[in-house]
Design a protein around this nucleic acid. Structure first.
Lengths: 151, 151
DNA sequence: CTATAATCAGACAAAAAACTCCCTTTGGAG
DNA sequence: CTCCAAAGGGAGTTTTTTGTCTGATTATAG
């Protein structure tokens, strides 16, 4: 309804990494198992997040992915601008390329306040808080945690 | 960000039809020209809306599409349930299949109120109102109205 | 009856999104 | 130094969405 699968995987993975000990690289395979998400596809997404400066990666034994310094406080909006593209916030609900107060679609003035709620929410939620919520054990990051069944 | 292209075309087309004289069939080609949308694709969408009971269609000369009786008051939610599928309202922002108050993702309790705003908006806007807004001339249904250039 | 103009129907094509495979590069452990 | 396990990278495949084409059906006008 709002996010592409790629963005959903990215956010899930980042929250999961944020729940792990900082500085200790997390394996792509472990994340994929935990989130029950295709590993090879997730790897591409993590690689991209590396290039964008959100994650650091380490190769070879003891390799894996870490959040870069300060990125615990990254909010979801910042991440989604990377995964959905820079026009993410600019979209008209009817799909018009040009839709502003001056050139409005018939839904514009009703939609804008709702959109502001969405963007506000995405701006106020950061990885650290979400990770802490998960760590309480009250919230789920994935549907059927296959890793949890095995361990 | 929220709606598929198919849904956007469907809503645009229905609003446009609602602006036209009731009972006088509107041509697919005219709608497509006006909205600057692929005609053959739009035809499929309109056919589907016929099967779903929103539109009536007439073949042959003087043919075209009309809103069925009472459908002027159809709200956007009802239309989107047809074009996006019955799970449209049920989606979790992180993509979890199972995400309720009992089995919540870490965004759930913050997301639900925002989602309610979205669904509330879609529920309160109907074709008649949107058509009237367009008829004032203050709002646009399409990006570059090619038909307006010709006429 | 015939020509014409509209929708209907189904197969097809192209583009985008989601996902996979294979091989290379890297770096730690033995 | 060698082996192995990790990420890196590029091409390829599958699936979904979007869009096209062709011919059949229907109904009106002349």
């Amino acid at each position: 309804m709002v996010l592409s699968r790629t963005s959903q995987y990215a956010v899930q993975a980042l929250i999961y990494i944020a729940t792990q000990t900082p500085g200790e690289p997390v394996l792509n395979r472990d994340i994929a198992d935990r989130l029950n998400v295709p590993a090879a596809y997730l790897a591409k997404i993590l690689q991209n997040l590396c290039k964008q400066g959100v994650l650091a990666s380490f190769r070879g034994r003891l390799g894996g992915f870490c959040l870069r310094d300060g990125m615990h406080r990254t909010n979801l909006m910042q991440i989604l601008l990377l995964t959905e593209g820079p026009d993410f916030t600019k979209s008209c609900i009817l799909g018009l390329k040009e839709c502003s107060d001056a050139t409005a679609c018939p839904m514009h003035f009703k939609w804008i306040p709702v959109k502001k709620k969405i963007l506000g929410l995405l701006n106020e939620m950061n990885l650290e808080e979400l990770a802490k919520a998960v760590q309480t054990g009250k919230y789920r990051l994935a549907d059927l945690p296959t890793a949890a069944l095995a361990g």
